[in-house]
Amino acid sequence: MSSKNLKNSPLSPSLENLYKAYESMYLIRRFEEKAGQLYGMGFIAGFCHLYIGQEAVVIGLQQAVTTNDSIITSYRDHGHMLACDMSPGGVMAELTGRSGGYSKGKGGSMHMFSREKKFYGGHGIVGAQVPIGTGLALAHQYKNDNGICFTYMGDGGSNQGQMFEAFNMAALWKLPVLYIIENNLYAMGTSLDRHAAVTDLSTRGSAQGIPGKSVDGMDYLAMREAALEAASYVRSGKGPFVLEAKTYRYRGHSMSDPAKYRSKEEVEDIKSHHDPLSILEAEILRQGGDKDHLESITKDVKKKIDAAVEFAKESPEPSESELFTDILV
């Protein structure tokens, strides 16, 4: 769907909204760039999966999130947490394994949570978050709190058996869950057409009668409109919905993946013609926005991220007594 069609739609956002979205997307971009640097410097270790390139997906969807909604995703989770308004310092300090991190340093990049922000992780086992998100939706329905659960997964994750099991229950019980498949075309080194028999992932729920839609995940406006529609469908009690966001990750699967399975040209083409920040910037300017204002936004974000990095470096390691806490309540 093209953003041009949205100009006069009632769903079309204000310039203010676009500025805010740009800020949020740039915050993720900058955060991830810095996380990559800190990894290179040895402050972060293990697995670290960057979200660069996919920013418009989560920020588009965030526009449809209301107070009682819950959110859950995979290990590629930094962007989702920042979108939930979790503090960049708290997230970064978890990446560095420090006590100021969201899990006191005990979780790491893939395992962060915030009950306050209703962010339920951060899951390292591909596909595991899908039934869990479905269970969060069961809780919304049970408590009748008007909340829905935004359950994210990757294209590779959308092959897991437990996803299909969860879809069936969600459809059967009309659970308020919005499934978002972030199709970045690769599951680690395996391209979509080599891992999925049907590559239109919006049809993942068709056997269970779950409606779905594909949307350009590089285009904030398109993402936002699709999110608002899908969330209002789910919120109205009709049951689950599947949104396939077609997107791309710029970096390797994790910091240790040189990504030799795709060509430089492919990556460069996306960066120069489909970059979500550039697309949104062009839209802002087209709507009469101000380049200087965008610059001041990026300046502020950079400061915020610098502070987060500082915090993550300075925060002390967890105390040794933490080793044996939090195992049982």
């Binding site: 978890e94 394994g97 395992h111 044996f324």
Partner: peptide, 14 residues
């Protein structure tokens, strides 16, 4: 140790 493996470098060592 009888705990899920922590991420933090110092706790992992322990």
């Amino acid at each position: 140790k009888d705990v899920p493996l922590p991420y933090a470098a110092n706790l992992e060592r322990l």
